Simulated scan of single mutants.
Amino acid sequence: MIAVLTGDIVRSTKMSERQYQDLIQLLREHISTLSNSYQARGQVYRGDEFQIHFPDPDFAIKQTILLKLLLITSPVISTPIHCTLSLAFGQHSVMDASPGTSTGPVYVDSGRKLDTSQREALVVTFSDCQNDPSLTLLTSCISHQLNKLTQSQAELLHMYIDSDFVEHQKLADKLGTSRQNISNRLSSMGAHLIRDYIQLINQKLR
């Protein structure tokens, strides 16, 4: 089993030429980082869409949410950059160096779900249980939660997830504030629910 993430930047046509170029550069640099850290491979195509495949699916859901948060907090433009993301877990027929020259059910599932999803949504699909209503509902709730975040909330949540859910005191020390302040902020955005969701998705891979 592998994981394939297909994404689409929302309202990219409203950006200036410079903002758009900076955004594409940000995506390419991030894909390069994922390649170095997790052997993931990806590409930007059709202007504002991208696809990344993860040979080891264990990293996929965490990195998918981190990418969504990275775009929200990006300094490329003054307002958050939102995206639609379709993450699929399943089998492949051919996994080449590039997703564009790879094929199999998991690539088809990821692309089709992106095409039929609402804008800014996060969609997660397992090829062996595509009609699981409980997973669909839970993912929709998490997606709604992520899309409501302010940039400052997204920055803190990114730090929390990227540090593997470090103790609140360590985040407080890093940011020069109190543990209670960090705990209150994380609680208000439902960070523990997002943590549990990531763990649940990874448990389904076992």
Rank of each mutant, 00 (worst) to 15 (best):
A3R: 00
T6G: 08
G7E: 06
D8C: 06
R11F: 03
T13I: 07
K14P: 00
E29W: 12
S35C: 00
N36K: 12
Y38I: 14
A40N: 06
A40C: 13
V44Q: 00
Y45E: 03
R46Q: 11
E49F: 00
I52Y: 08
P55S: 05
D56L: 01
D56R: 07
F59V: 12
T64I: 03
K68P: 05
L71N: 03
S78M: 09
I81L: 15
I81F: 05
L87Y: 09
F89Y: 15
F89I: 03
S93H: 08
S98N: 10
G100W: 12
G104F: 03
D109F: 04
S110R: 01
S117H: 03
L122N: 02
V123G: 02
V123C: 13
V124D: 07
T125P: 05
N131K: 11
D132N: 15
P133N: 14
P133H: 15
S134K: 09
L138A: 15
C141G: 08
I142M: 15
L146C: 10
N147R: 14
K148C: 10
L149M: 12
T150D: 08
T150P: 09
Q151M: 05
Q153N: 14
Q153V: 02
A154M: 02
V166D: 13
V166K: 15
V166Q: 15
Q169Y: 09
L175R: 11
L175N: 04
G176Q: 10
S178M: 10
R179E: 10
Q180D: 12
N181W: 03
M189V: 15
M189F: 11
A191E: 07
A191Q: 11
H192I: 13
L193D: 09
K204Y: 10
L205G: 05
L205A: 00
